[in-house]
Write a protein that binds this DNA or RNA. Structure first.
Lengths: 141, 141
DNA sequence: TTGGGTGCAAATCATTTGCAATTAT
DNA sequence: ATAATTGCAAATGATTTGCACCCAA
């Protein structure tokens, strides 16, 4: 009965469905994740979650993030510098541009690049399991 | 006078030119780096360097790798899992395929992908400072 | 000679884990 | 009831750093 958003409700339903216990601290974290449109790290998520549910510990944030990642609810990114950053997984696959000056993250998607990756791997006798493409960029003057 | 390879001699010359002191431990590390065709991490490089110069400490390996990286002599990669891995910088830029089963690293190069990256960034108002493309792959059956 | 370089041990940083207490089911 | 989940603090693993000694130039 909290004021969770639609996105959050869906994630909570996903947990229940997967037989994972829905705790106060998990609801807080899911709510924070659902609202975030940036790509926060664990400490930032902890700070935000504490405002909703002061009892959440950083350890639980880390543990829950791992559970959510395994469940496909969030994606973990290891961008250059600092710790891992997270985002709720939305339908379409995408890669990231990182503004080297501001740290801002922009998402983009390119079928062409994906196809070229597959082609390159195939020609070398491999198939791509997953990949990582990050463009560290600066705003054009 | 040592049994250093051509590659190693060049790196030593580069250090001298840059006014960086050429020490016993640095020669050992450069020699190990010159011989490596895999992408070893700091601990592995330390193990190999100790066989040439038993006095090298892991701290010095890390310190020297940072110096070499700043000097453009080596490249540091942060692949998924474990610590950073290093390679001597060769002329041509390239990206990496990582065999998820064996950990093996294969290099590849694609002008087409680079061009697409630039195009995508440009259309979003950015210019690419540097990028990172890693294909985590499995050998085709 | 002398300031940069080194080994060692202690300090960081991000993340994980053991354990006793709590709580969702 | 009872097994999953939690908070806390201590442990981990990779990397960095302070400091007194050492050695390349």
């Amino acid at each position: 009965m909290g004021g969770e958003s639609d996105k959050t409700e869906k994630m909570i339903a996903a947990l229940k469905k997967a037989g994972i216990r829905v705790t106060r601290q998990r609801i807080a974290l899911l709510s924070v994740l659902g609202d975030a449109d940036d790509h926060p790290d664990a400490v930032e998520l902890h700070n935000r979650a504490k405002e909703i549910e002061p009892s959440v510990s950083l350890a639980t944030v880390y543990r829950t993030l791992s559970v959510l990642e395994e469940g496909g609810v969030v994606h973990r990114h290891a961008f250059d510098g600092g710790g891992a950053r997270f985002e709720t997984s939305h339908e379409e696959h995408h890669d990231h541009i990182l503004d080297v000056d501001t740290g801002e993250v922009i998402e983009f998607q390119s079928d062409k690049i994906e196809q070229l990756q597959d082609k390159i791997a195939r020609e070398l006798g491999y198939e791509v399991v997953h990949h990582r493409l990050e463009l560290y960029c600066r705003k054009k003057p």
